[in-house]
């Protein structure tokens, strides 16, 4: 069944790809979405002064 891949999705914060599975005619039969970026804040926070956590995690999202 034909697939439509949309990568990147725009007008959002972050990186997202969507793959639509269609029946070839007029219907979407399945959809998979994929986050395309990883930073690992939990790992970065380890072994730090706990009071730094607020300062660092606030940068997870800038919107």
């Amino acid at each position: 069944m034909p697939k439509i891949t949309l990568d990147p999705i725009t007008r959002i914060e972050g990186h997202l790809a969507v793959e639509l599975q269609t029946n070839g005619t007029n219907a979407v039969t399945g959809a998979l979405s994929q986050g395309k970026m990883f930073r690992g804040f939990e790992l970065i926070l380890k072994n730090r002064n706990p009071r730094d956590a607020v300062i660092l995690t606030q940068r997870i999202c800038g919107v």
């Binding site: 990568d7 990147p8 725009t10 007008r11 959002i12």
Partner: peptide
């Protein structure tokens, strides 16, 4: 600009 532009996917890139 992935945040601001209207078109998406390969239309954009």
């Amino acid at each position: 600009s992935e945040t601001l532009m209207a078109s998406m996917s390969t239309q954009a890139t």
